[in-house]
Amino acid sequence: MDIDLLSTAYSILAVVAVGSALGVVFGRSPVASLLFMVSSLASIAGIFVILEAHFLAAIQVMVYAGAIMVLFLFVIMLLNLGHDYQQDLKGWAWSMVALFVSGGIGGVLVQRFLDLRGTGLSLGLGLPNGNALDRSIEELGALGVIAEPLYTTYVVPFEITGILLLVAIVGALVLAKRNVEGGGTVDGGAAGGEGGR
């Protein structure tokens, strides 16, 4: 694809991502914030595509924008927060200080990234330089390139991740369970079994 076209696409997506992010922070209602968040995630997924991380782009949309955000939405609905249009920003003095701190972090990060000049990350989008990653994508495919190390080098962390998900499911059940009279037990095992994979 044309590099200029890619750059243009990237610029648009970046603007959308930043704008949506600001929308998340300053959105009036939780539902609005959530929808801005989805938009931000979608544009980041687009950037992933440009960076040739196709698999991540796909699960970004499916898992993040799809599953996790819907989970948030459910909770907002469940708690009936959707009609709460009051702005819950902190006071202006606090906000100024917060702005200073977060801006400082952003600034320091930018400054850090500037130091990376000359280490191979300096070229704009870093496209297209036919680097090692591109070659292995050609060789193994977009999925294979991530699956191969995931099931070899990183197989132990990968399995532990499964356990983490199982624990999270059980934990979520225990935490959110209503205390029913008569002390019914939580059957976390069955639900966790699905969640773990």
Binding site: K90, W94, V101, G104, I105, V108, Q111
Partner: peptide, 20 residues
């Protein structure tokens, strides 16, 4: 929670600043 989050973030900033 807000105060904790603020202290944490400010702490990160301070560390980043001194190790820049």
């Amino acid at each position: 929670v807000n105060v904790y989050a603020f202290v944490l973030t400010a702490g990160v900033l301070v560390i980043l600043w001194f190790t820049r």
